[in-house]
Design a protein around this nucleic acid. Structure first.
Lengths: 202, 202
DNA sequence: GTCTATACTCTGATAGAC
DNA sequence: GTCTATCAGAGTATAGAC
């Protein structure tokens, strides 16, 4: 990862990362080539390697920080708020992430499928800690009878699985929902709100 | 795809496909190399290419037929049976697939993430038709008041997303659920049965 | 900072002996 | 049918001019 100083350097760095996101998310790490990234970025291949030490370095730069963004909606879940409202807001924000950052979702999914070689430490550290902490919050809400009883960690998994599905399996969703290129997200938002409302009501 | 005649040919074909599944599911199509597959299969690289015309041919051989296996549990959902029981049985069988065929699940997920270049036709044909047909069955059950009202296609997506998550994001599930290498599937089975029971009850 | 040219490695596929 | 040896192409990274 480079440490850009000037505006031009910052801008080119950003252009490269944007192009790399496009290519890595669509083809995976090995499937992507520097030629493709350079073409999308509108730069020459050696110029990419002037800003980043290696292909691997570009990939790492993309992944680091992504997990944080990904977990922000969960972090935002307020123990002092209304349980059902907090959870529904979490689901809604997570679905918006899937819609607005679907490439990031697929990049992350690619990494998971391959055993998370580059971010396993973060999974077993920050991610695990945050989930366990929020699971405690959920458990307290259940004990107070404010939401229905269930395994709190699997409940969080459900939010992830159901929302990310629309980004990661976008092709399949489109193929099934029809020939028309209609946006499935409004329907999904309504559906998921209904699902979680029914699930959580004590 | 070769057409094996003798038992030895059949057996080597199977050994190659098993090795290829192992490697492709862990690294994706481009990430996998014939050297790796040959090593796992215990054969030489040219010998692989005696049985299959190319790397691509091995991959296609794996994918074709996989979709069928994957959809069998949905096909088995009986319009004449008890709605809630049929759906819960579907969820249970799908979760068992995730547990017993997690590599196949990841192979499939890899293909989806990259836009399903090799099976898009099947998605827009057989898959779409089956889902639409079963969505009709679900809709009828809802109209009869036997299960709660919701979007039937998204309901099917939910089954897929929730069950496949345990195979595709296995690393993350393990990382979060703990240091102990405990099997998350029994818990998941109980959790998902509760979830769908609550969701479906009118 | 950016480019052209190129070195070098990896990998899919083939040739040909046995 | 299976192997060793090898080719040809792709792809990462570097050298060096401008």
């Amino acid at each position: 990862m480079t440490k850009p100083r000037t505006r031009i350097q910052q801008r080119n760095s950003d252009v490269i990362l944007e192009a790399a996101l496009e290519v890595f998310s669509a083809h995976g790490f090995r499937g992507a080539t520097l030629d493709q990234i350079a073409a999308v970025a509108g730069l020459s291949k050696p110029n990419l390697l002037y800003y980043f030490a290696s292909k691997e370095a570009i990939h790492v730069a993309l992944l680091s920080g992504l997990l944080d963004t990904w977990l922000d909606p969960l972090r935002a879940m307020d123990p002092e708020g209304d349980p059902v409202a907090e959870l529904l807001a979490y689901v809604r924000r997570k679905l918006e992430l899937s819609r607005d950052y679907s490439r990031e979702s697929r990049l992350f999914a690619n990494e998971m499928l391959q055993g998370a070689p580059r971010i396993r430490a973060a999974l077993e550290g920050d991610l695990r800690d945050l989930v366990q902490q929020k699971a405690g919050v959920l458990q307290a809400w259940m004990d107070q009878g404010r939401i229905a009883h269930m395994h709190p960690v699997h409940l969080i998994f459900s939010v992830w699985a159901l929302t990310q599905h629309y980004a990661d399996f976008e092709v399949q969703v489109q193929a099934v929902l029809g020939s028309d290129g209609a946006d499935p997200y409004p329907e999904a938002a309504v559906y998921l709100e209904t699902l979680f409302r029914r699930l959580l009501t004590p």
